[in-house]
Design a binder for these strands. Structure first.
Length: 608
RNA sequence: GGCCCUAUAGUUCAACGGAUAGAACGGAAGUUUCCUAAACUUUAAAUCCAGGUUCGAUUCCUGGUGGGGCUACCA
């Protein structure tokens, strides 16, 4: 993301920087000219090949005027001389593979194992990054799409914090607008004073019931009008229910006491329900904004812009921005009846945030169906001379699709958030009990474990996918607990903790240092290298705003550790030095797993 | 119509312009006198099509084709 900067470079990448610098010097010395160190890319060697780092010789042939092979040979010979950490340098098809001495990797482990801030750069102290996410409508309960939004927003915030940014998590509640009036109207007409208690429903679900009811009755009215010969488009505008909802909106904006009282009651129900869902998901915010409190600011901006001649007023009194010269169409900013639309309040919130927080970046975690909306928002702000409009970044994530297609709240084809959370916990409980793993647990510990595993499965399932891509969720197949999943990683962690408990009993310290020379097994080295790359992955995840990178990395580590665990004895090793080293390696791997999972908002159990 | 996103094993997902395109699930075959088998090992299976740029393209560009989204006085 172009607005973000790196907060700091962690010390662990120093060997790559050293290699790049030496390569640059080598080429200049050998051939008289060469790239700057920044132009040299030092990559990790592919898994199938032997080596730790790879430098590609092809780009250097323009300096050497020789084949990639001999260029690589000469460079390799130079580097081996210049860098004592290099044990071997071999060239295969123009790829210079460097093998570092085991002592380098062991020293890395020793130096960082006790550092709780390993991989974390110093906090930048610069202007904060705002992350807006969740932003629910108060007219219906949360569904699977919101879950993706919440998990992404929360995880990104954690990642950005870890990468050294000051982060402010914002929730903007869409608590006003025509959509709210629809549920309110349906409740007025057909609610008979029903309450969550009397209905025995979670409060936000009760509101959703009336939103769906409105839509059903509204569609009936449209159908009736159409059957009497009206054009469908016209019928949608003339149906009595929609006209009534519009009246209700005007009343609301004019502070009609009765309307406001109903609105407040229904919103309270919505917040109660959302609060419960957030709690179960483990989502928190630093601040909550309410659209009802900022939309007037948006109206003012529009009025002022109108006076200054930036906008146009149509015959019916509605106000529009003419963006036809800017790669967009005309965009409505205020309705003819003076009430505000979606973008009106977004103009207000943006201005409000900019003044209040002086952010370096404003990230909006909002679905990709709103790409156009944010383009227009930025264009309108720019039009008004707000040069900070460029600080707005729309993180547009893909939709969660069901096998039959897109979810539609109004038509009831949604995967409800609360239901899904409940099902995940139930599945976790069933699976755990079948495996007999809860047998010796206290009931409270078991309950906590089911929650941890269930949420781990759900969160990992969603966050491992690249945010910008659409993803598929098939309720029939449910979310797996084996393979590339949250529970797999949690299980790996639990195994490590079990091992460490036993190691402690046997007198082996996990965090200490001071082992002697040691020949690394291939599996051990692969684990160390994955730990070594954690800081880099964190930076990449922050830069690309992608929790998926963390998820992929941690899966690699868990997989690698499981293989090691299976094939290499730790506590039963012959050599005490080997036991000591492997205990330490296990401890460090466990820490990286725990911390990475925390970046995804996922907890890890001590046993499972 | 216009604009935007997307296309990889049967399925769900990976791959800073680099080597033989990786995993998982599902399929086939194995591993438990040994630190937790929610694990591990082996195996079959894929870059939508046609051009272009490059030493090198799944990746970048152009044109097709398929899928999705936006283009609301909904948010």
């Amino acid at each position: 993301m172009k607005f973000l900067y790196l907060c700091g470079v962690t010390t662990t990448r120093m060997i790559e920087q050293l290699l790049a610098r030496q390569t640059s010097e080598a080429l200049k010395k050998l051939y008289g000219d060469g790239p700057s160190p920044g132009e040299v890319s030092v990559e990790k060697t592919r898994k199938e090949q032997e080596g730790d780092f790879t430098i590609i010789a092809f780009p250097f042939t323009r300096y050497s005027k020789k084949s990639p092979e001999s260029t690589g040979q000469e460079l390799g010979a130079y580097l081996k001389q210049a860098v004592p950490e290099i044990r071997e340098a071999g060239v295969i098809k123009g790829f210079l593979n460097l093998i570092l001495d085991d002592s380098f990797w062991i020293r890395f482990l020793e130096e960082n194992i006790g550092d709780p801030r390993f991989g974390l750069p110093e906090p930048s102290g610069k202007d904060p990054v705002l992350v807006e996410f969740s932003s629910p409508n108060t007219n219906k309960p949360l569904h699977l799409g919101h879950i993706r939004n919440n998990l992404l927003g929360y995880s990104l915030s954690e990642i950005l914090k870890a990468a050294g940014h000051r982060v402010i998590r914002l929730n903007l509640v869409n608590d006003r607008g025509i959509h709210i009036c629809k549920s309110m109207l349906a409740y007025q007409k057909w609610g008979n004073g029903e309450t969550p208690q009397s209905a025995g429903m979670k409060s936000d679900h009760l509101i959703g019931k009336y939103y769906v009811l409105f839509d059903r009755k509204y569609k009936e009215e449209i159908a009736a009008l159409v059957s009497r010969g009206m054009e469908p488009e016209e019928a949608e505008k003339q149906a009595p229910l929609i006209l009534e909802a519009q009246e209700l909106l005007v009343k609301w904006e004019n502070n009609d006491p009765e309307t406001r009282a109903l609105w407040e009651q229904m919103n309270r129900w919505a917040y109660e329900g959302f609060g419960e869902t957030y709690r179960r998901l483990g989502i928190v915010f630093d601040n909550t904004e309410y659209e009802s409190q900022v939309y007037l600011m948006g109206k003012d901006i529009v009025r002022k812009g109108m006076q200054e001649g930036h906008f146009i007023r149509k015959e019916d009194g509605s106000i529009w921005a003419d963006l036809t010269g800017y790669g967009a169409d005309e965009k409505l900013l205020l309705r003819a009846d003076g009430t505000s639309v979606y973008i009106t309040q977004d103009l207000g919130t943006a201005e409000n945030r900019y003044r209040h927080y002086h952010p370096s970046v404003m990230i909006y975690v909002v679905g990709n169906e709103q790409i156009y909306h944010f383009e227009v928002l930025k264009k309108v702000l720019t039009r008004l001379g707000k040069d900070w409009a460029e600080k707005i970044y729309h993180l547009s994530y893909g939709m969660v699709e069901l096998p039959e297609g897109k979810m539609k709240s109004r038509e009831g084809t949604v995967v409800d958030a609360d239901d899904l959370i409940g099902e995940m916990e139930e599945t976790a409980e069933r699976t755990t009990r079948e495996l007999g793993k809860a047998n010796e647990m206290e009931e409270s510990e078991a309950k906590q474990l089911f929650h941890t595993i269930g949420m781990g499965a759900l969160k990992y399932f969603i966050l491992k996918v690249d945010p910008k891509k659409n993803m598929l969720f098939d309720p029939q197949e449910s979310i797996d607990f084996n393979g590339n999943t949250g529970p797999f990683i949690q299980y790996t962690y639990a195994r490590i903790q079990s091992l460490l408990r036993k190691a402690g009993e046997a007198g082996y310290a996990a965090g200490g240092s001071g082992s002697g020379p040691y020949n690394l097994l291939p599996g051990e080295k692969r684990i160390i290298k994955l730990i070594y790359r954690f800081p880099e992955t964190l930076q990449q995840a922050a830069l690309q705003l992608s929790p998926a990178l963390i998820a992929n990395h941690i899966y690699e580590l868990a997989k690698e550790y499981n293989q090691f665990y299976q094939e290499v004895p730790v506590l039963k090793a012959e050599d005490p030095a080997a036991i000591g080293f492997r205990v330490k390696l296990s401890f460090f791997a466990g820490e990286i797993i725990r911390r990475s999972m925390a970046l995804l908002g996922i907890g890890v159990p001590q046993r499972m």
